[in-house]
């Protein structure tokens, strides 16, 4: 389509973009101001007295243990997404190809889990997880695998259905074991959906607050938990400078990731929305 030049519409869109970017810009700007010049005057630009340079980042990272929380968030997100994509692909393929009653029941249970809100299971899930000693950064990966498997198996399973089974049968006649068939034939075909599933789960786990807070608590803070805890019950004594730096550290990786792979992210989020 030829691009039209409609100056009024164009200027309006630029203004609207500014409105959309404004809240993020405010946080970035305030992260460079001294801690007493943020609350009360968040819209004022930093001047000679209120400019803090990178001080907030240094105090934020050292004082509130944000560095550790950041590394922990990366660790949990990466490994959970890896486990979800790999294991749910295998599970989805198996229960779609196996016609037994058990497989069909398992699939129905996965579908059912998608409509259950987290609050329904949060109390008992926390109890079970701590009873099984899953209340640490490695154990929580199993919890994410279990709680995220519904949507992942559903999306991957939907795609498996569209792969012609003859393809796999041909490979097996040629002597492939089902294991090899899966990894050298099925998984490469599943890739686009696997990318979608990875993006949806990564966004969920990176931003997730309540589940890691209940299961890991204060001992192993993730980034959202560290942000919430540093605000809770400390209204008078909050270091607003360090707090702004924390918010930036939580936003920045997602925005950078987004700018490099926005096509996949937008497509992935829509695919997840339309199906889920």
């Amino acid at each position: 389509m030829k691009e039209k030049t409609n100056p009024v519409g164009f200027i309006f869109m630029i203004l609207l973009s500014a409105v959309f970017l404004f809240p993020i810009a405010i946080v970035f700007m305030n992260s460079f101001k001294t801690k007493f010049s943020i609350m009360g005057s968040p819209f004022r630009l930093p001047n000679k007295e209120t400019f803090a340079g990178f001080d907030n980042y240094i105090t934020g990272i050292t004082a509130a243990g944000i560095g550790g929380a950041f590394v922990r968030s990366v660790f949990i997100t990466v490994l959970s997404v890896f486990a979800l994509v790999l294991l749910c692909s295998m599970t989805a393929w198996y229960i779609m190809r196996d016609t037994s009653r058990l497989s069909r029941i398992i699939y129905k249970l996965f579908l059912f889990s998608m409509i259950v809100p987290f609050q329904m299971v949060m109390y008992t899930m926390t109890y079970v997880a701590s009873g099984l000693h899953l209340n640490n950064p490695v154990g929580i990966i199993a919890v994410y695998l279990g709680f995220g498997s519904g949507l992942s198996v559903f999306m991957l399973g939907g795609f498996v259905k569209s792969i012609p089974e003859e393809l796999e049968e041909a490979a097996e006649i040629d002597g492939c074991t089902p294991l090899r068939t899966f990894f050298s034939i099925v998984f490469p075909i599943l890739k686009p959906t696997a990318v979608t599933v990875a993006i949806l789960n990564a966004m969920w786990i990176w931003n997730d607050y309540l589940l890691p807070y209940l299961i890991l608590g204060n001992r192993y803070k993730t980034l959202p938990v560290a942000i919430q805890i540093s605000m809770q019950g400390a209204y008078g004594s909050v270091n607003w400078g360090g707090f702004m730096a924390m918010l930036v550290l939580a936003i920045l990786p997602i925005i950078i990731f987004y700018l490099f792979s926005q096509k996949y992210i937008i497509e992935g989020v829509i695919a997840g929305a339309v199906k889920g």
Binding site: M90, L145, V153
Partner: peptide
């Protein structure tokens, strides 16, 4: 199936 299913049983 078992790894996913076990995690699913435990956490859901």
């Amino acid at each position: 199936v078992l790894p996913t299913l076990l995690a699913f049983i435990i956490s859901f």
